[in-house]
Design a protein around this nucleic acid. Structure first.
Length: 152
DNA sequence: GCCAACGTTGGC
DNA sequence: GCCAACGTTGGC
């Protein structure tokens, strides 16, 4: 099983949106970056994902969700009324991918970004690298464990 | 295929 | 709200 981290603005879709309807998967749409898209394609059912809250008051890792449906064409790329509409994409040749995610748990406390930056063993995590804007990234087993140990 | 201009991300 | 860093676009 692989591990991942996905950034989100909690005002739009945070861990609490998963928690309030734990049996309802949420479609992760709107990723419009090729490197992130490629990671989405690699995700498999059962993979666990850290949910990271960005651009908000409390920045950091807030919880865990899991992949319940592997990559398929992002539905909003075909909807002209969507902010994520892509006129250069087509049903025949879709450009962007989504996965469906379900709630697993909130962490006992949020792990703030500056704490993650200070941990040894996370130097290679794209999240803590200066200037990284990648919104979907792999997390190694070692990195996953190091992060979870902070709240266990 | 280079690279300047532009738009976006995201911490502060 | 600022702005640095990054990704994308488009002229040449």
């Amino acid at each position: 099983m692989a591990h991942w981290l996905m950034k989100t603005e909690p005002d739009e879709c945070g861990i609490d949106d998963f928690a309030k309807a734990p049996d309802t998967p949420i479609t992760w749409d709107g990723v419009r970056n090729y490197q992130a898209r490629n990671f989405i394609k690699e995700m498999a059912v059962g993979d666990e994902v850290f949910i990271y809250h960005s651009s908000c008051k409390h920045i950091g890792i807030a919880g865990v969700v899991k992949v319940v449906k592997a990559a398929y064409p992002d539905p909003v790329q075909f909807k002209p009324q969507s902010a994520y509409y892509d006129e250069k994409s087509s049903v025949e040749k879709p450009r962007w991918q989504s996965v469906d995610l379900s709630f697993v748990r909130k962490l006992p406390r949020l792990i703030p970004l500056d704490e993650l930056k200070a941990l040894s063993g996370l130097e290679d995590l794209a999240l803590v690298k200066r200037g990284s804007r990648l919104s979907v990234m792999p997390v190694s087993n070692e990195q996953w464990q190091i992060i979870l140990e902070q709240v266990s």
